[in-house]
Design a protein around this nucleic acid. Structure first.
Lengths: 340, 340
DNA sequence: TTGTACGCGTTATCAA
DNA sequence: TTGATAACGCGTACAA
């Protein structure tokens, strides 16, 4: 059973291969009944056009790339799912490439993938979306690309973002509204721009309410549960213990909850803990985590959509901001002193 | 800046394109200094061979496929990572395809991907690896494929598995060893073969120790935390409450822990809970989960390695069984009655 | 050890 | 509206 080709279809339909090609590419100048004959022949033969032949002959490959360098399974899965969903709608294939951002061959590897696979464009996820060298290299290749959550907007490349700073501020204001006054923050990985924005949002809220945001209320984390646990222990060892902790991602919040359990603190009565991202984890831990929903799937879907536009030669907005959502669960509540 | 081709390299090196091709494919019959000249030219031009041209001209595409239909981010991420790692070693590209197993177009979509991309072979993950129709269709296409954790071995396709039944038995024996006598089980999704094996392992251990394994100790779950929570509530409502629960995956175990917290039970004193898989989650919940480590990454790595052998025309063992590991954390302990 | 000529399956060009 | 033919960039068969 050898592979069916465009010649087989043409022979069966009694037309030239060029006409089959026209049908394949939805070109208008084909008579309706010719088109029907060709389509029937394709169906009868179960014909599938070769991606390789198409992209070799044409100027487009119908392949788009997704590059990531992210240790979070949930994040990567959500991004992939969103991009896959959008590709499916446009009958595009998605080529997924995992990278190692610490490797100095990173850029070479991405460019090699681009040249070898002839992808029409690239969706770039954080933290690669903030790698200036990489982005510059892509621009020199004149390859269309869309960034998800870059630290700073990049001229010439559309970005899809959420408002990290506003979201962090909302969360902190929610905690203030519960009556908390000493609210510690577990900062995210210093290499991620969103970390700075989230910490800034926390500070915004405290200062706006005339509260302190001193260094004793800040502990450095690295986006891992282990770092969150350590940071929480440091914050909770202070003389004037915070009554609430805002962790800049859910994993660190989970680590902070571990620390609270280790100290025998009852949540949320003796300590409130909030996270950020609303990963799957947030609903699986005890108590369920109050957090900010980051629309990762939607961001990837939209980014891929913008890339499709770019590839078609259409314009795309420089920045697309998607809405976040404060999700209140059981890990936060009024501070105990208020209850007494 | 137009794309560099094999002709550019040949011109710069002063040889024919055939010689460049030989160097590219590591063929032996090239004089050392000729090879060096060609390699220098390739480096100077930053030449990357076109995947499409290679697979169109040759009889191999250097592309292997990975198909999955699995809602678990952790599982998918681990599988992808293992397959990617092995591909990298052989300079293969991995084409990742997400499927919807409930869609009746499933088989058509997989075959379309195979025909369009010319993948040399396929790594098939559960539950697709137990889809008899799909496997039969692949066999008819004469496409090499390797199965990860199929329900039953399939003639002609190597499988990479772990011993679910033995692992579940070990876990149950560990709980028996702690002094538990009433050990409930939260069964996994009935469509997954591993669910039956894990439940069987639980029963093996109880029967071998002369304990009961009656229906009041079994609750049906569906591999989700929500179903685990519900199942745990059902089991814990029994007149003679179990002192330990064995959930057939970690997500359900997390749900069971939620249920225990809701009932105000202190773990592990009043109730021990064990899981299966050792996902990232296991270390992030409170108390940290005793579970069985399933070597998903390694299984995918090995499966890809076997596929590479198959594609080369080499033989591959029908079944490769990788070791699991009992990971004891804090969610299990002796039953309270023993302590008193 | 190296090179020439052809074909892989499609799109692009140009003519009919 | 349709078709003949030349690319696309590489591997393969065979020759030198």
């Amino acid at each position: 059973m050898t592979r069916k080709t465009i010649d087989d279809v043409a022979a069966l339909a009694g037309v030239s291969i060029k006409t089959v090609s026209r049908v394949l590419n939805d070109e208008p100048s084909v008579r309706a009944d010719t088109r029907r004959r060709v389509e029937e022949a394709m169906a009868a033969l179960n014909y599938q056009p070769s991606l390789h032949a198409r992209s070799l002959a044409g100027r487009r490959s119908s392949l788009v790339g997704l590059v990531y360098d992210n240790p979070s399974a949930n994040y990567v899965f959500a991004v992939q799912s969103g991009a896959i969903a959008r590709c499916r709608e446009s009958k595009l294939r998605l080529f997924i490439q995992s990278c190692d951002g610490l490797d100095d061959r990173l850029i070479g590897e991405v460019l090699a993938m681009v040249d070898q696979t002839h992808v029409d464009g690239l969706v770039v996820t954080p933290p690669l979306s903030s790698n200036a060298e990489l982005l510059e290299a892509l621009r020199r290749r004149r390859l269309p690309f869309v960034l998800i959550a870059p630290d700073v907007p990049v001229a010439g490349a559309p970005s899809v973002v959420m408002d990290d700073r506003a979201a962090a501020r909302e969360m902190t204001e929610y905690l203030l509204g519960l009556g908390h006054r000493h609210i510690g923050v577990i900062a995210g990985h210093p290499d991620h721009g969103s970390s700075r924005l989230r910490e800034a949002g926390w500070r915004d809220a405290l200062l706006a309410h005339g509260e302190q945001a001193g260094p004793d209320l800040v502990a450095q984390g690295y986006n891992t549960a282990a770092s969150g646990r350590e940071a929480a222990h440091a914050l909770l060892a202070a003389a004037e213990r915070p009554t609430a902790l805002f962790a800049c991602n859910d994993d660190m919040a989970a680590g902070a909850i571990l620390a609270a359990h280790e100290l025998g603190l009852v949540l949320p009565d003796q300590l409130s803990i909030a996270g950020f991202d609303d990963t799957e984890l947030a609903g699986l831990i005890w108590p369920p985590l109050t957090t900010i929903h980051q629309p990762v799937y939607d961001m990837a879907y939209r980014a891929t959509e913008l890339l499709v536009q770019l590839v078609r030669g259409e314009e795309a907005p420089a920045t697309t901001r998607l809405d976040h959502r404060l999700v209140v669960r059981a890990s936060t509540g009024p501070p105990r002193s208020r209850l007494e």
